[in-house]
């Protein structure tokens, strides 16, 4: 309970209500969700460090007979090449989450800069041209565009990140342009102008934080989609290449023998779900918190 209270005190000015009222409030404002999501993500990240570190084996090393079911020695069993599924699932954590993080942070940064730039620019031509590029990119499903780009760039995780950067920025640009257009007309921006603040001060202290807060909330839910997208691309053989441990690729490897052995497919799938649920709890909390700031 102390963890709950310490967290909540930072985020909210919780009024002196009954303990039950407080609890309901925290459920509603997403605090509890953020703590649960944060804990789930923390466990995953911790296991991602500890399991490869403490395991006596390498992730691409044969340790047992192929297709051994889960046992007390090998908790998640072994795959078709006799590799430890438990070790491989947790060896993938930083690769999957790291690539997804890059696949979000690069488009996020690009898109925010472009979006705010467009909203600030007075050039109608620039807005029309870049605006239609944004709409054009957004008109395609992300997966289709990403596959097309990877076909040009060649398979591999590097191509996945480049493809994501080239396509996904448009969503952030559209979001931050719309938001910046609203924010720049707010009284506090005009007041900052009459106070004589410099343009960089107005931009970075007053405008950008109020624009990026919205895109951050979107970015967190986008992270979930990007994790799934990376797994999907690897499943299709376009992302991580064998023997690199990666959830999508592992599911792909185990798929032909699924009827014989379910564990090489199910455990990476569960890891994907776990990461997705954890992040969606956090994203939901951030979105609700953001809504509270604005109201």
């Amino acid at each position: 309970m102390t963890l709950v209270e310490a967290g909540a005190a930072d985020w909210f000015d919780v009024k002196g209500t009954t303990p039950k009222g407080k609890q309901a409030r925290r459920l509603k404002d997403g605090t509890i969700g953020m703590i649960v999501g944060g804990a789930m993500l923390g466990i995953l990240l911790l296991m991602g460090i500890l399991v490869p570190l403490l395991s006596p084996y390498e992730s691409d090393q044969s340790v047992d007979m192929p297709f051994m079911p889960p046992s007390s020695t090998f908790l998640f069993g072994s795959d078709g090449l006799g590799r430890d599924v438990f070790l491989r699932v947790f060896s993938s954590v930083y690769l999957d989450l790291g690539v997804a993080f890059l696949g979000v942070i690069i488009p996020f940064t690009l898109g925010t800069i472009i979006g705010i730039g467009l909203a600030m620019s007075r050039s109608k031509k620039l807005n029309a041209v870049v605006g239609s590029v944004i709409d054009g990119i957004n008109a395609f499903p992300l997966l289709v565009l990403a596959i097309a780009l990877i076909a040009i760039l060649g398979p591999g995780l590097q191509s996945v990140v480049i493809a994501l950067s080239l396509t996904n920025w448009a969503r952030y640009a559209r979001l931050s342009r719309t938001r910046a257009q609203v924010v720049k007309q707010q009284g506090y921006i005009e007041a900052a102008q009459t106070l004589g603040y410099s343009k960089p001060r107005i931009l970075f202290k007053h405008l950008v934080p109020n624009v990026s807060s919205e895109t951050t909330a979107y970015g967190l839910s986008d992270l979930i989609l990007v994790i799934l997208l990376i797994a999907s691309l690897s499943f299709l053989g376009l992302g991580a290449q064998p023997p690199t441990p990666e959830w999508g690729a592992m599911i792909s490897d185990g798929r032909p023998t699924l009827q014989m052995a379910w564990w090489p497919v199910v455990f990476p799938g569960l890891a994907l779900c776990w990461a997705g649920v954890a992040l969606s709890f956090i994203a939901e909390g951030v979105t609700r918190r953001e809504r509270d700031v604005k109201s």
């Binding site: 009284g187 506090y188 604005k294």
Partner: peptide, 11 residues
């Protein structure tokens, strides 16, 4: 300004 809700930086 007129709108008390928009005239202060919410953050």
């Amino acid at each position: 300004f007129q709108d008390p809700y928009g005239s202060l930086n919410p953050r």
